[in-house]
Design a protein around this nucleic acid. Structure first.
Lengths: 356, 356
DNA sequence: CCTGAGCATGCAGTCGTTTGCAAGACACCG
DNA sequence: CGGTGTCTTGCAAACGACTGCATGCTCAGG
């Protein structure tokens, strides 16, 4: 019986170190254990283990351990056309909102033996589509999407094709897919409560882009909370992206007329833009105008003044999204669910009673 | 000729939509183009294209495009035992230092058709080892490691086994592997120059942990820069992690005696810890004590006071690391290189002339 | 006209697993 | 004692692409 392994690699690079032992294959394990590869496969596989005699299972497992056998996920994927891998689409990892979410996703996936493939889309539909395609080619078992637009053809099409999928943070309308997000409406309501309690009546909203759900949902929540308090709900400017620059521009527009006594920003970056605009307009926060952010990003507690913001449990958002997807992949709970995680208002130095 | 495809999936879920067209395989393309799969493979593959008649190449490519054929990377990997995937090990994605690096890596990899697999190790050797193993099992072609310890057995062993690998941000001693990092020594030297120019002579250093190269390198650079200016180089406290809490603790120790007029922190988080310690000690920055950070993380420009810090081109660090690895994988430049990217001191409000 | 070179393509095995099918072993029952 | 199960295991065919080798063709040179 001759070795079935070519030794050509020796001649290929004669000066390499002690000939890396090629990782053992299932066949090696089977041979060493004196069984057929098929039996070894069944013995090593949780689901099929019952098919083989316990004593044999034991023997195979021991041999596998001794040889340091690890299944080759590539070969398995080829056969099963599953990859234990999921695609994660985020707008931009560099935006402080997303790292905790991604981290949560990766931790939860790893626990189940899954791996995440991450791509940044920069909110560009073309990049999104191409990343999506690449990931599908790589046989990902499903997607976690943090880039969804309110009306997102890609997401709709994928959902219709039955691609397993969970949306996180942002939703898409009229979609039969699971979503995990913060309870934005309640967050905004608490914010308004807080401001009204301080005595504010003239409250404005710098909304995020209305093409994504967070922008639209928070805007709607702002309106209804204001109405609930019997206050005017029409002091609104929509920023065209979630960035400091867009926040500054929007806030300047707001401050052109009679400044409000408080501004509720669509997220923390917009809030920081408001800080800039206030400073440029010679107004002080919170003395002249209170500002509230959303997301409670790292370091916002250390701004001047420390930013009052709505804390969203980002890490948990990621964990929950991953769990939902895993459930879906394992066949349990095939039905779509919407999970809203509780948020909380963190009051800091950027909100104070109005001076007027 | 009958279809070789089972139609069992219909019965499996009779209510699903229009039967997802299974993605075409190389065999489909070959049949449609009237050639053998082998020929189709050669026609579609850059390297082997020369082996087939131009007219045939053209025909195959057209058919492939028409059918929307995409190679199945899994099958290819199985055969070639390459995966066009690289493993990326970072301590914690949640630390603002890393997202830009990871982003740079992913962008540069994507350009070459490669994909990144990211794992967070929390600086835990056990987690690091296990992530490393999982990634190897997934046949990654190489690693980009941002978690290296100064003396890192795992890294050493991998290097010895010939695993393609690039270290980023942190180095390991006595290692024959490529490294991409910021030019920390120069960054520290510029910092000291700046402080000395302002009139400081009593300058302390809150060093990062000496188990990682950034801690050790910056400490050494601090010493030599101080000596260069003929100043005492022994006001040093070592923090035991790169965190705000560790920075605070270290700084409090420093302030227990006669406070220095300036503190050079090992990174921005440590600098923020210094802010805390100063405040607790009733000292003001920069009036009583100047503080300098390192890395120039997002938002440090908006702290109170805005932090003077050394800007490190993190995104470029990632890009360069990815390029180096790709070069290595493609067989070019198999020799290890150390690339130090230039850094720059960004002077803000946390540094001022000493009051004493 | 024959031969050999050179090009273009086909053939078939292989990468490492999984899995439907079948066969052998054994026990049990009528 | 033969038939019918139940267990356990082996056989072999996939999954989709790559690749060494063989084959057939064309064409030039002698």
């Amino acid at each position: 019986m001759t070795s079935r392994r070519p030794t050509a690699n020796f001649s290929a690079s004669p000066h390499t170190l002690p000939a890396v032992a090629p990782r053992p294959t299932l066949r090696d394990v089977a041979t060493a254990a004196g069984v057929h590869p098929a039996t070894a496969s069944r013995a090593l596989n949780e689901a099929t283990r019952v098919l083989v005699r316990p004593a044999t299972v034991e023997r195979v497992r021991e041999v596998a351990a001794a040889l340091g056998y690890q299944v080759n996920p590539i070969a398995r994927s080829l056969k099963t056309s599953r990859s234990e891998t999921v695609g994660v689409l985020v707008p931009d990892l560099t935006n402080p909102l997303f790292p905790p979410i991604v981290r949560g996703i990766e931790d939860a996936l790893a626990e189940a033996g899954y791996t995440a493939l991450t791509a940044n889309t920069d909110n560009d539909p073309a990049r999104t589509a191409s990343s999506f395609a690449v990931m599908q080619a790589r046989q990902v078992d499903g997607f976690i999407i943090a880039t969804a637009l309110l009306d997102d053809p890609l997401v709709h099409e994928a959902a219709q094709r039955g691609v397993p999928m969970v949306l996180v943070n942002r939703q898409t309308e009229h979609l039969d897919a699971s979503v995990v997000a913060g309870d934005d409406a309640t967050g905004i309501a608490r914010t308004i409560d807080h401001l009204v309690e301080l005595g504010h009546r003239d409250i404005a909203h710098v909304a995020g882009p209305l093409t994504v759900s967070t922008g639209a949902v928070r805007l709607r929540a702002f309106r209804s909370a204001m109405q609930h308090h019997g206050l005017p709900d029409d002091r609104i400017v929509v920023a065209d992206s979630y960035s400091e620059a867009a926040g500054r521009t929007a806030a300047l527009e707001l401050l052109a007329g009679q400044p409000p006594t408080a501004v509720v920003a669509g997220n923390d970056l917009l809030a920081i833009g408001c800080y800039d605009a206030l400073e440029e307009s010679g107004l002080r926060c919170p003395d002249d105008v209170s500002v509230v952010g959303f997301n409670d990003m790292p370091l916002v507690s250390r701004l001047r003044p420390p930013l009052t913001s709505v804390r969203v449990p980002q890490y948990e958002l990621g964990v929950e999204a991953a769990r939902l997807l895993l459930d879906r992949l394992s066949g349990r709970t095939p039905t779509a669910r919407v999970v809203l995680l509780p948020v909380s208002l963190v009051v800091r130095g950027s909100t104070a009673p109005p001076s007027r």
